[in-house]
Simulated assay, not measured.
Amino acid sequence: MEQGSRQELPPPAPFYRSIFSEIEEVGWEHLVRSEEDLSSLSFRILDKNGRAHILEIALPRNYPESAPSIAADVPYICDIEWSKSSKLKNIVQQFREHLQKLQEFWSIMEDIDRNLWILDPKQPSLATSYRQICLGNDCSLLLNVYARNAWSLPECRFFGPDSTVNLLRNNWRKNSRKWTKDKHFHENLAILLETTLPRPHTVSNKNDEQVDCGICYAQYLPVDDEFGDNSGSAPDYTCENLSCSRAFHTVCLRDWLRSITTTRQSFDVLFGNCPYCSEPVAVKVSKCS
């Protein structure tokens, strides 16, 4: 009874020194959060196309004898190859290689979002592999793209009036062999369904919504000596999450981050989360601070 209720002792000092050394190898600028006992670490990793990913690494009590577990906002996670001599940098490298394999999948999902009228989800994450697409005439198509083989014929399900849905379903079956990697994803869909697909519904208004700063709700900062070189400037920082892309004045974002208790400062950079989508953001501290 007493043994079961006994609290676990914190890791010894050499454990902390070892983990700090491994974080240094990865780069402190990539660390976005960590538990006090270093049982969990989160790193921000950019893929080759600039997409930001948060890699969460959970360290077991007997690390590095036992392999860590990882989680990330991806359609499927990679299997980590691990040995007693492995380090955090090896996990990050394997995760980068995994991201490389997923580039085609994300390019296809972006092609769908850019060219078709998406009903659901409104703000898809990088792990989301489905899209519900408006086909017109009260019909829609639920697509599931296979992340491991993104260019294969997707799984689909039709919704709408039976007469129209039956025609679309028959066209899909009849033309399925015409699916090819030589055409864009949305072009393949139009060929298989033998119909013109509606374009995005609100694309013309999207840029207008992003003109103002997401914090002060103004397009330009006041002309005031208080803002120095930023006086009268337009938003100059954009959230890197493609589903958000909210614009901010760096000055406003910096002040907002300072008001949040979870914000972390490393040297002259503030690390925190976007006020709208909670994706990581980072801004430099002003020289006059």
Rank of each mutant, 00 (worst) to 15 (best):
64 P>V: 08
64 P>W: 05
65 E>D: 14
67 A>E: 15
67 A>V: 06
67 A>S: 14
68 P>I: 04
69 S>T: 15
69 S>Q: 03
69 S>R: 10
72 A>C: 05
73 D>R: 01
75 P>V: 14
78 C>L: 06
79 D>Y: 06
79 D>M: 06
80 I>N: 09
81 E>M: 12
81 E>K: 15
81 E>N: 10
81 E>W: 12
83 S>T: 09
84 K>F: 09
85 S>C: 06
87 K>S: 08
88 L>N: 07
89 K>S: 14
90 N>K: 08
91 I>A: 06
95 F>N: 01
98 H>Q: 05
99 L>R: 01
100 Q>W: 01
100 Q>I: 00
100 Q>T: 01
102 L>V: 04
105 F>R: 01
106 W>Y: 04
107 S>M: 07
108 I>R: 05
109 M>F: 07
109 M>V: 03
111 D>M: 06
112 I>H: 04
112 I>A: 11
112 I>W: 06
113 D>L: 12
115 N>T: 13
117 W>E: 14
118 I>E: 13
118 I>G: 07
119 L>P: 03
120 D>C: 08
121 P>H: 11
125 S>T: 14
126 L>P: 05
127 A>M: 04
127 A>E: 14
127 A>W: 09
127 A>R: 14
128 T>D: 13
129 S>L: 10
130 Y>F: 15
131 R>F: 04
132 Q>M: 09
134 C>K: 08
135 L>N: 00
137 N>R: 15
138 D>V: 02
138 D>I: 03
140 S>M: 02
140 S>I: 05
141 L>R: 08
143 L>Q: 02
143 L>W: 03
143 L>Y: 04
144 N>Q: 11
144 N>A: 08
145 V>E: 00
145 V>A: 04
147 A>F: 03
148 R>T: 07
148 R>G: 06
149 N>H: 13
150 A>S: 15
151 W>A: 10
152 S>H: 08
153 L>C: 08
154 P>V: 07
154 P>A: 11
156 C>S: 14
158 F>I: 00
161 P>T: 00
165 V>I: 04
166 N>E: 12
167 L>W: 00
167 L>S: 02
168 L>I: 02
168 L>G: 00
170 N>M: 02
172 W>V: 13
172 W>A: 05
174 K>S: 14
175 N>M: 07
175 N>V: 06
176 S>R: 15
177 R>M: 13
177 R>Q: 14
180 T>Y: 10
182 D>C: 11
184 H>I: 00
184 H>W: 05
184 H>A: 10
185 F>G: 10
185 F>C: 12
